[in-house]
Design a protein around this nucleic acid. Sequence first.
DNA 1: GCCAACGTTGGC
DNA 2: GCCAACGTTGGC
Length: 160
Amino acid sequence: MTVTRERLFWLFKSEPSCFSFDDLKARHNGTEHWDGVRNFQARNLLRDEIKPGDGVLFYHSNIPEPAIVGIAEVVSEGYPDWTALDPSAEHFDPRASRDNPVWYMVDVRYVRPLKRPVTLNEMKTHPELSGMVLLKRSRLSVQPVTHHEWEYILRLGGID
DNA sequence: GCCAACGTTGGC
DNA sequence: GCCAACGTTGGC
């Protein structure tokens, strides 16, 4: 018997100059592994908490107008981020090994863009969103989003 | 490009 | 195990 849990929601940050929402769309089946996360709190989420079927808000950071631009979906369990094992990879980590991967990732699949991006500035003006991790601990690159925040942002983004 | 916030490292 | 130094993130 399979035990399922309620669908959960997350926000993944990416610098569009490095990997944008359109880049995800262009991947085979719109699917790509979310590698390169090198923060332990985010690692724990990827390894233990984030499950197939969960919703992902795709956020563009480090640009003049940072914003949530689209929706993606988690399509794998967490599994070892093998880019940490590759000395030639940007996010190589000498501590990682096959026996002790240290870092984890999940696969995400493109779902749809928001009809209009929801900018960081706009989010700051909505009291309903004041509890968002994005506004309180902005540096965490993989972070939880409440169901209420998810619905609210989709509505702001023109999706019902 | 600046710099505040903050996570990580390493000496003690 | 504390905490200063350091490195990185990311808004501006």
